[in-house]
Each structure stands twice: as structure tokens, then as C-alpha cells.
Simulated assay, not measured.
Amino acid sequence: MIRIFLIEDDAVIRRMLEKIINESGLGEIVGQANDGIGVTIDQLYGVDVILIDLLMPGLDGIQTIKGLQAEGFTGRFIMVSQVENKEMIGEAYAQGIDTFIQKPINRLEVLSVLKRVADHLSLEASLYSIRKSLQILDIKGKEQSGFSFTNPASYGMAAYEQSTLEQKIRQLMLQLGIAGEAGAPDLLLIIQWLMQEERGNQLRELQLKELYTQILHKLHGNLNEQLIGKEVRAMEQRIRRMVLQAFTHLSSLGLADYANPTFEHFAPRFFDFQEVRLRMKELESGEKNTKCRISVRKFLSAFLFEAKA
């Protein structure tokens, strides 16, 4: 559950947002203010997301965001506004807001935005946990090979490259609609392992189960065959569900707008386009399940290529 702080000068809108959030169970309101003037970093301890009005008397939303970021707040911002001025909206995005909620308030839009942000935060937590595990493994590997940390600059560059890769992977996940999927951390592990080991060509040579087994052995050490088999099956199921979600997400984008740039770019690269068209027809007829065939190997290969680009 995400912790939310409201900054909104309209008391009616504050009450509406509070009611929607409390009833949804997606988050909890931990503080409120009717303008940005009196809000300080001390009031935002543990806050994940600030819902903030763009136009407020005294100190507007953008000025408030700048001030709180300068004080050290690192959480997310969601702008609440009915402004349609493209320059103001562009400035808000440049300042780091995640998205807009348009006024008048629409319950479904609020829930959709909050669910997306909650998924992003959950993914970030998973990525952080995996990153720490990979750093430990990396350090152990360097120690075993006689690596010395006498040149911290080179290690810092490696950490920077790792961070940049994670950002690209996360962005791809968001575009494919799989950021909140249980298989997202597994996908991160696979792509990082393939790139670090320079084994991208092994996607063509290895059986996927063998690939998963090698990654799990590196992550967990020497597990017995029974435990490894169980973990491999669980990873296999998570990844397949995630790939199916990406397949359905892209198909739904194409159904809504055939010229959607995300659909145009990714659908033919990640999947057989004939299968995508079949899935679009299924969605159009209201079918939740699919008879379409998807290739996990093709998906992983395409994802690796996009991450490298």
C-alpha cells in the first residue's frame, strides 16, 4: 500500500480523492495541505507519492515540487489539474512528475493512475533487491579472480553502466505493460546475466530451462537438483505469464489505435504479427483467454536487442 500526501487548495477535491483512495485499498492518505507554502520535507517522511494541484494561490504546483526536491524529497509526484496549456504541462513533466490526473476528478482515472504508480514502486523495490544480490555476486566473483578495489573509478563506471541498463529495462517493461508482473524481476536477471556474460547468442543455442537453471545456480549457489527444478518451473511459469501479458497489452493497444507508436514498434518485433492480429480479434469479441501461440524465446531475444540499443 502506497503512502500518499495531498496538496490541493480545493477542499471538495481533497475529500473526493481521499474517499476514492481509502475505498480502493491502493494507498493511504498520511497528510494533507491546502497549498504548498507550509509543506516541508519533515512532513513527508515515508511518503511515496504526492498528489499536487498545478494551480494554487501563493505557490503553484511546479514551484512546490522544485522546493521539495531541493529539500531532498525523492518520492513521486502526480499532478492534478484541468490546465491544457502545453507549455505548463511540459514544464511539469520536465520537473519530474509521473503523470496527470485531469479535473474534474474521474474515479476510474484516479484508480488507474495510482495502480500504475503502485506497480512501478513495487518493481523498483524488486529491482533494488535484485541489484543488491547481483552486486554481492559480482563482488564475490571479482574476489575469487583476484580483483582488487584499488581502482574505484572503474568499478564506479561499471555501477553506472549497470544502473543505465536497469533504467532501459524498466522503461521497456513499462512500455510493454509488464512492470507490475511477477516475472519482471526474473526478466531483469535474465537480461543482465546475458549481457554481463556476453551470452546473448546462447538464446539460440540453449534450452530455456537450461538458461533458467544457470541463472538460478549463479544467484543461489549450489542448490540440490530437486530445489533447482522447483525454482526453474516457478520461473518458467512467471515468465510465460508475463510474456502473455505483454502480448495481450500490445494487442489491446493495436485494437484501440492501429497507428499507436508503441504497438507499431514492438508488436512485430516481439511476436508473430499474425498471432497479434488473431489476439486483437479475440479481444474485440470479448475473449479473455487466447488460443494464440507465443514464443518466449523470441520475446527474450527481442527484449535483449532493445535493451542493447
Rank of each mutant, 00 (worst) to 15 (best):
K140N: 12
Q144D: 11
G146K: 02
G146S: 06
G146L: 05
S148V: 15
F149Q: 13
F149P: 14
F149T: 08
F149E: 14
T150S: 14
N151V: 10
N151E: 14
P152N: 04
P152A: 01
P152G: 00
A153R: 15
G156I: 06
A159W: 11
A159K: 11
A159E: 09
Y160E: 14
E161V: 08
E161N: 08
S163A: 14
S163R: 15
T164P: 06
Q167G: 09
Q167S: 12
I169S: 01
I169C: 01
I169G: 00
I169V: 07
R170N: 11
M173C: 11
M173S: 10
L174A: 10
G177P: 00
I178W: 01
I178M: 02
G183R: 01
G183D: 00
A184L: 02
I190M: 05
I191P: 00
I191Y: 00
Q192F: 06
E198K: 13
G200E: 07
N201A: 09
Q202D: 12
Q202K: 06
R204K: 14
E205D: 13
L206D: 12
Q207F: 12
Q207K: 10
L208Q: 05
L211I: 07
L211C: 01
L211R: 02
L211T: 01
T213F: 08
T213P: 08
Q214D: 12
I215P: 07
K218Y: 12
K218D: 08
K218S: 06
N222S: 13
Q226F: 13
L227D: 14
G229Y: 08
K230C: 09
K230W: 10
E231D: 06
M235K: 05
E236S: 15
I239C: 00
I239N: 00
R240F: 07
M242F: 02
L244H: 01
A246T: 03
A246W: 02
F247W: 03
T248N: 09
S252K: 14
S252H: 07
L253A: 01
L255V: 07
Y258E: 13
Y258T: 11
A259Y: 07
A259E: 09
N260K: 00
N260C: 08
T262R: 09
H265N: 11
A267E: 04
P268Q: 03
R269M: 06
R269P: 04
D272G: 03
D272N: 10
E275G: 01
L283T: 03
L283M: 06
L283E: 07
